[in-house]
Structure formats: C-alpha cells, structure tokens
C-alpha cells in the first residue's frame, strides 16, 4: 500500500499519516488515537503505517504538526476547547456535548474495547489500526456500541480477536521442540510460523511451562530464546536449522500411529482443528496419508476375521465378595 499524500486534493481533506514503531506498537497507537480524538480528526482523515515515515513532507512527528494549529483544519463552529493549549478548535462532533473529553482527560473507552485492542493489534491485517480508531471514534457517541455484536465494525473486531486467540492457542499446541546437547546441556529448539504478530504475547505461556529448560522458538519475523533466566528476542530466521529427528521423536511417531483407530475415520473433524497449513511443522503429519490409506483394509480385516479361541489358558476370574466398607456405601 502506498502512503497517501498528506494533502489529498481530490477529496479536499487533510490526511494525517500516523507512523507506528512496529506491528504491535500498542502504546504508539493509543497515544496517537488519544490525540486524534482530542483534535476531532475523523477516521477518514487518518492513514496508519508501520515503520519510519516514508514521505519527507510528513517526516516530522505528526503531533508536532498537530500541535501547530496551522496544520489542522479549523472547525466551522469554532468552539474553543479550554483544555487545548494550542488553541485548536474541536470539531463539530464534540461541540456542545458535555462529557466528551479532550486530550488529557479520559476517553470513552469501555473495558471490552481495551481488551479487544490488546489482541486485535496483534492481527496481521494492515487495516486493524484504522478499524480500531474508527470504533474508538464511534464509541465517543455510541456508548452501547461494544454490546452490538451484530454491528459490522464490532463483528470485524470480534472476528479479528478470535483469529488472534486461535493463532496463539494453536501455537501453544503445535510448537514441537527438538533436543540438542550444547556444552553438555540440553537445548530445545522449534520452528513455528504464526499467522499473526503473536510471538511476544505468547512468550509467557512457554516461560510458565518450561521455565527450567533452555528453549528457542524461531519464526520468519522474529525468534525468542529463554535461557532459563531471561527471554531474548532474536531476528527472524529460516526453517531448516533444527537438529535432526531423533529417538524421542520416533517414539512420538509410534504413539501417533497407534493411538489412531482405523475403524473411525473422521477427516473433516481432524482438519477443522489441525488445518493443513500447520502440517509441515508437525512431524506426525507425514503419517496421516498412509494411516488413512490403510484404514479401510485394516477395518475390513478386523470385521472378516473369524473369532479365535483364546491361545492362552484363561482362568475364570472370581470376583471377591464386595468389600464391607464399599458395601456400606451411601447410595
């Protein structure tokens, strides 16, 4: 996506380009959103970007400009906000409405929204920043908005947060460590490709579970290593740097093969919860095709096999009389 010029003549609107520090810059988003609201800048007037500003004309920090009254549109109603030292007129939307806060005061932000921001910001869709700002903008007037799960914007936020949570959950499930001895100490290494920006957010789970282990999880965008005391973020990597499969993994493969019941194939149910996009990082997934292919014959063989008498001597089990303490139970 090309950044739009800060002066978009066709729509005669002043566009404000916001540049966030990184993909999950929640502090940056919050600070920007707070000030945009305070200045009454509508969602349509804002473009959001990640990374350093690319347009020389807007290199300067947006808020340096924002505080420069000349760079902001004058609101027609010209109601001067007492709180705003820069003397910027708030827009119509706040005019005459007591309780609508300006900068420095608290915004109308329901708790559910704050929680949504934390997870939606991790989503990979570039429009998330703008969508969050639009909902924040609408919340200033539509107090019940977050309760309207059928509202298109709220539904989109809910869907995004669900996708992020699912991605995080699937990461806790599908990370597979391989073991390598480094200087006499086992190290656990995994490669995982999350869809969303969840690496830092999921770190506490792995620390809480494997605090005494030395583990590293690499992904295309970033990696992290827990050395037993501290978490270190690493630059992104490439797959293939893992230790070779070993006896431990072979046991897991055996287990997967044998816990499967060939008499009940339910492929849809499996793929719904373990979509193919995860398979290439799951060692056991390479068994799936052959297990499915052999299932029909194995089941048929079980059905057709004539019952055999026991090959061992079976001694009839004599149930002992029920224990007196159990017989006196409280049924």
């Amino acid at each position: 996506m090309q950044p739009r010029s800060s002066w978009d003549c066709s729509s005669r609107a002043l566009m404000h380009n916001i540049y966030l520090k990184d993909e999950t810059d929640i502090e940056g988003w919050r600070a920007a959103a707070r000030r945009l609201i305070a200045h009454g800048i509508t969602p349509q007037e804002v473009d959001w970007y990640v990374g350093p500003a690319r347009d020389a004309a807007v290199q300067a920090d947006f808020f340096a400009m924002a505080d420069d009254a000349t760079n902001l549109p004058a609101a027609p109603s010209s109601i001067v906000d007492q709180e705003n030292n820069a003397g910027i007129a708030p827009p119509n939307i706040f005019a005459g409405q007591p309780g609508i806060p300006a900068e420095g005061r608290s915004l109308m932000v329901p708790r559910q929204f704050v929680e949504l921001v934390r997870s939606v910001i991790l989503h990979c869709a570039p429009e998330r920043f703008g969508l969050l700002y639009r909902v924040l903008w609408r919340l200033q007037q539509e107090r019940g908005l977050m309760r309207l799960a059928g509202d298109a914007d709220v539904a989109r936020l809910n869907a995004m947060t669900k996708a992020v949570r699912r991605d995080m959950h699937k990461m806790t499930a599908f990370v597979r460590f391989r073991e390598a001895m480094v200087e006499g100490r086992p190290r656990y290494l995994a490669w995982f490709e999350p869809e969303h920006h969840i690496m830092a957010a999921i770190a506490p789970f792995f620390i809480g579970r494997f605090a005494a282990m030395d583990w590293t999880i690499m992904s295309p965008r970033m990696g992290m290593r827990w050395d037993g005391n501290m978490l270190h973020f690493l630059p992104g990597g490439k797959p293939g740097a893992l230790p070779a499969e070993d006896a431990g993994e072979a046991l897991w493969m055996s287990y997967y093969r044998h816990i499967f019941n060939p008499a009940r194939l339910k492929l849809k149910a499996m793929q719904k919860e373990m979509p193919k996009k995860y398979w290439h990082n799951l060692p056991e997934a390479e068994l799936i095709t052959s297990l499915i292919a052999g299932a029909g014959m194995r089941t048929q063989a079980m059905l057709e096999r004539a019952p055999e008498p026991p090959r061992r001597k079976v001694i009839g089990y004599q149930r002992k009389p029920r224990r007196p303490d159990i017989a006196g139970g409280n049924e």
């Binding site: 809480g208 816990i259 499967f260 339910k266 373990m274 799951l282």
Partner: peptide, 28 residues
C-alpha cells in the same frame, strides 16, 4: 498452575490444549 519458579516442569490452562489430531478426528 505453572512452573515459573524454575522448579519442576509444566503448567495447566483452563481450557486444555489439544496438541494433535489423529485421522479419527480425536484430539491428542
């Protein structure tokens, strides 16, 4: 529970985690 204290190993979550699925559709 967790083992953030560095003793032992492991944690539990409220909803549980299915680490894999077999072609019979059952969670592992």
């Amino acid at each position: 529970r967790n083992s953030r204290d560095g003793k032992g190993i492991g944690s539990t979550t409220g909803t549980g985690i299915c680490h894999s699925y077999a072609p019979d559709g059952r969670c592992i």
